[in-house]
Amino acid sequence: MAMRKRRTARKRTPVLPGTDPGAAASAGRIGSWPLAGGLALLSVLIVLLDVATGDDLRVVPLLVVVPALASVFCTLRQTVWVAVWITSVVVGSGLGGDGTFWDFVFGIGFTVLACALGVAACAARIRHATEMARLRSATVALQRQILRPLPVVTGQVLAYGLYEPMEEDRFVGGDIYEVVESPHGTRVIIGDVQGKGLAAIGAGFAAIAAFREAAVREPTLTGVVDALEDAVVRHNAFSAQTGEAERFVTALVLGFDDESDRVQAVNCGHLPPRLLHEGRSSAVPLARTYVPLGLAGLSRETRAAESFGFPPDATLLVVTDGVTEARDAARAFYALDERLGRWAGHGPRELLDALQHDLADFTGGVRRDDVAALALRRAPAGDGPRATATRGKLRPIAP
């Protein structure tokens, strides 16, 4: 009985999209009954047409293209079944015809060869789809391992997050975020690596690793940003040696402390934060936007931190361009600032839920970039790490 219960529980385990390699192989599967009905109807029409044209024009051999079409849209079992059916129809038509023996033999041989090629093509397609699904699953798993599960509670902030990575290999992006509590307060980064693919993930990992170390070590926010710049430059130098293209990283780095209701910020080519407070939302007007990480050598400016107000009951929203550059069916961009006003009174978790659902409705579920967003609020008194530990494990927000 215990064994039976364990088996039942295993069957009920949900599978996340993009993590089941077999799903890609059967994604375009045609139902068996529609396939059988369509094949029978096509066979009857072709045979009747063949009878009508007589021996002057044989039409039945044209059925050999059907297994080739089935190999594109059907499963391997369905393609084999189609091949057997077509071979049977061609053989039956040849036996009832008036052709010579060698015409019959060559017709059957050609049909068998075409059907075998269709089955082989279907097997190759399914094998390739399975391999690509496994690659996408590994890539998405790698992204999720690099990035911290959210929400996170520190001594200064409550950080909730939304993260939806692309699962198509050529569109996999390099969105990054991290929240680190240090002796100098809580440091937060959100950024986007230029380009797509596994190379972008590598550059993002280099930036995240440098941030985790520098956020604890450096006493100033500009020191953290300088460490990030050096890390991206070193990564680009290594990439050049291995033949990979150099990349830059747009990033917004924030610093929170206990001494004031203000936030320090250094914007390296990223989108400005949005502040939601007292039922209103607005973009935070940062005075300077510096060049992205990895490009400081092209500018004479020295990055400096600036500050802005962050009241205790306000929510600070930071996003990547996967949000602002999302498009609908008419290719119009997502108007984030116009829509945020509807949710200005929401808490951080409710705000991200509303944003996620609204993005899905706006794009029709079709995305071309990663989506990452953080909703930050000042932590109430006594909500530091020790208080967090007493509440059990942090539960990540499902994308």
Rank of each mutant, 00 (worst) to 15 (best):
A287D: 13
L276I: 08
V180R: 04
D55I: 04
V284E: 06
A120H: 05
R12Q: 15
D258Y: 08
A305H: 10
R288Y: 08
L41S: 08
V89L: 12
E131C: 06
A70R: 03
V60C: 03
W102F: 15
V91W: 12
Q78P: 10
V66Y: 02
A304K: 15
E338D: 14
T289K: 10
T250I: 09
I146N: 09
V153T: 15
S182V: 05
R170E: 11
T320S: 13
L113C: 12
G269M: 07
E350P: 04
E213Q: 11
H128T: 15
A116R: 05
A387K: 00
E213V: 10
R127E: 14
A52H: 04
G18E: 02
R77H: 07
R77F: 02
G204L: 06
E167R: 13
G345I: 01
I46A: 11
L49I: 08
V47E: 05
Y160W: 13
L45D: 07
M1D: 12
G294K: 03
A354I: 03
F308I: 04
A304D: 06
G345S: 15
V253M: 00
A354M: 00
R4W: 07
F101R: 15
S299W: 11
W81K: 00
F101I: 14
A375N: 03
T75D: 12
W81C: 04
E338W: 04
T100D: 15
G279K: 12
D20I: 11
Q143S: 07
R12F: 10
E350Q: 14
V225H: 01
A304T: 14
A206L: 05
E164G: 01
A354D: 08
H128S: 15
G94P: 00
L340T: 04
A23M: 12
T320R: 01
F110L: 14
A200W: 03
A159I: 07
S281N: 06
D328M: 08
V105K: 10
L198E: 05
V112T: 09
L198Y: 12
Q145S: 14
V172L: 04
L317S: 10
A24Y: 12
R134P: 01
R327K: 14
I201N: 00
S282N: 05
L316T: 06
G18W: 04
V193M: 02
A200G: 09
Q145M: 15
A121D: 12
C115G: 05
A332D: 13
L113T: 15
E167V: 10
A387C: 08
G341P: 08
